[in-house]
């Protein structure tokens, strides 16, 4: 609760700093912004943004939205889901704390991702009130995610560093290309989960930072200027480009994450709800972790 209060105060403080300062876009800075636009020695972010946003971003998102579910559909039809006995013993995989943190992030993503898509395809929805509400929800649901992203990073980080198992896992694509239930080389988290973890936490922080930049828009924070070395208008352009590029990756892996948890492994989603994984599931999909638990006498 304290954290939420602090976050709120910090946000308001940031907002007031932003609005109290001389405008970085329409004030005196407007002159160098105009003079610098399209100059040879500049980064040409204005033109680059116009080209990307005008021609490619919507198409790429549409491609992702069609292609990824299609690939999953084919995978589901040809290889099908993995099913593990839900009758056997269960292993505690996620503590109550990690489940709560995960669920807050999950709820945020369930709102943020579709509302983001609605904005990308805003013209399809005709703009106006509906897309405007989605834009507001996209921002509001960033707040719970921003609160849990660092706790989520910290609670799993020790299990997320690369391991020899991960390379083996990647070579066989986690065993998802075969119907056979052979033990898959993976510790507590497999290479796929690790990739998603790093993208959701570090990439998530990039998404929060770039999104907040666009939301607050006209602010003057020396630290931001020192880090980026850009004028405010170019910072906004870079933020929009980055938000979309990292967005591609986040959206793809978010879809993968949902497919794995809900469809590809029957009942896998239960483990993040109850905290318990089926023993057989651990034995096959997280064989190295299973061996370790066995050695420790925990199973």
């Amino acid at each position: 609760m304290k954290k939420i209060v602090y976050f709120f105060i910090a946000t308001l403080a940031l907002a007031s700093v932003a609005y109290a300062a001389e405008s970085q876009i329409w004030g005196e800075m407007r002159i160098p912004n105009i003079l610098g636009y399209g100059q040879e020695q500049s980064l040409k972010l204005g033109e680059f943004f116009t080209l990307w946003q005008g021609h490619y971003i919507t198409t790429i998102f549409l491609g992702i939205l069609i292609l990824i579910p299609t690939v999953f559909g084919i995978h589901y039809l040809i290889i099908g889901p993995k099913t593990f006995s839900h009758e056997g013993k269960k292993i505690l995989a996620f503590s109550l704390y990690s489940r709560i943190v995960h669920q807050i992030a999950a709820i945020s993503f369930i709102v943020i991702v579709p509302t983001g898509f609605i904005m990308v395809f805003g013209s399809f929805f005709g703009g106006g009130e509906f897309v405007r509400i989605c834009k507001d929800l996209h921002g509001v649901f960033t707040i719970p995610f921003a609160i849990v992203v660092i706790p989520m990073f910290l609670m799993w980080v020790k299990d997320m560093f690369i391991h020899l198992d991960d390379i083996k896992w990647l070579i066989i694509v986690g065993g998802y290309l075969s119907k056979v239930k052979n033990p898959v080389p993976a510790g507590r988290f497999n290479a796929g989960q690790k990739t998603w973890y790093w993208l959701a936490t570090l990439g998530g922080i990039v998404m929060i930072a770039t999104g907040a930049t666009m939301f607050f828009m006209d602010f003057d924070i020396a630290m931001v200027k020192n880090i980026t070395g850009l004028s405010q208008i170019d910072t906004l352009r870079a933020a929009a480009i980055l938000h979309n590029l990292v967005g591609f990756a986040v959206v793809i892996l978010f879809f993968v994450h949902i497919y794995m948890a809900v469809f590809a492994i029957k009942g896998a989603v239960q483990s993040i709800i109850t905290g318990y994984m089926e023993e057989e599931e651990v034995k096959i999909l997280h064989s190295s972790w299973y061996r370790k638990l066995k050695k420790q006498g925990k199973v």
Partner: peptide, 16 residues
């Protein structure tokens, strides 16, 4: 009535 206030037009504008 269509505009959602995203700010993209400002990023693209050479004149602010």
């Amino acid at each position: 009535d269509k505009c959602i206030g995203c700010g993209y037009c400002l990023y693209a504008c050479p004149f602010g």
